[in-house]
């Protein structure tokens, strides 16, 4: 047990955990202070719509959590043995859980349960996308895909009849099953991307080549 604790401490120190904690604290403070502020987006149809700022906060929390997987010492970490991998997975699960706990703690007093669910769902979706993005371009660029989602979410969020589209997870109610489906899909894709190490990818490609 002391081994694991020390490993976690080593890992967190090398992955700028303090910076991430400060970032989360600032975001939660923004959420509490300005969460209700409305964001007016130009959107498809007629002018503007308004989404509360708090619906977008999980994006930044998710990007910070996944960005913590990156480290200045990634060239050394590429050669790490299995203990590192265990700690890495424990840390990302812990970071996402901590972000979720912070969000729930901050929102439980100011928002109804449906909004809390909506925010948790957004967090899970953006975590999945950040993992996918990090695997594609490196952990420091885990923000690319989550930030890209802002475009459809703020531009095509309303259909021709003035309703929020089924996939708009920042505005559909917390109980919307299609959006939870997106959350599950995103997490599976992100988890899969994280599991797809160069060796696994290589095995897959070799098997593919053999089958042809």
């Amino acid at each position: 047990m002391p081994d694991l604790r020390e490993s976690l401490i080593d890992y967190l120190r090398a992955h700028r955990f303090r910076g991430i904690a400060v970032g989360w604290a600032v975001l939660i403070a923004c959420d509490v202070a300005f969460g209700s502020a409305r964001l007016d987006f130009p959107f498809s149809g007629s002018g503007s719509s308004a989404t509360p700022l708090r619906h977008e906060i999980p994006l930044a929390l998710a990007v910070l959590a996944v960005g913590g997987l990156g480290s200045a010492m990634d060239s050394l970490e590429e050669t790490a043995a299995s203990g590192f991998r265990r700690v890495e997975i424990s840390c990302i699960v812990g970071a996402v859980s901590a972000a979720a706990a912070l969000l729930v703690a901050a929102e439980a007093f100011v928002s109804p349960m449906d909004t809390v669910l909506l925010l948790l769902r957004g967090l899970l979706i953006w975590v999945g996308l950040a993992l996918l993005s990090g695997r594609a371009w490196g952990w420091r660029f885990s923000w690319i895909l989550p930030l890209v989602t802002l475009f459809p979410l703020t531009y095509w969020q309303i259909d021709g009849l003035g309703r929020f589209r089924w996939w708009d997870w920042t505005d559909q109610p917390g109980s919307s099953m299609p959006c939870w489906g997106i959350a599950v899909g995103s997490l599976l894709a992100g988890g899969g991307a994280m599991a797809l190490t160069p060796w696994r990818l290589n095995r897959f490609l070799r098997a593919f080549r053999r089958s042809r």
Partner: peptide
């Protein structure tokens, strides 16, 4: 920073 500055600035 290659991570914090772009993310914070863009958002």
């Amino acid at each position: 920073s290659a991570f914090a500055a772009p993310v914070i600035c863009g958002l």
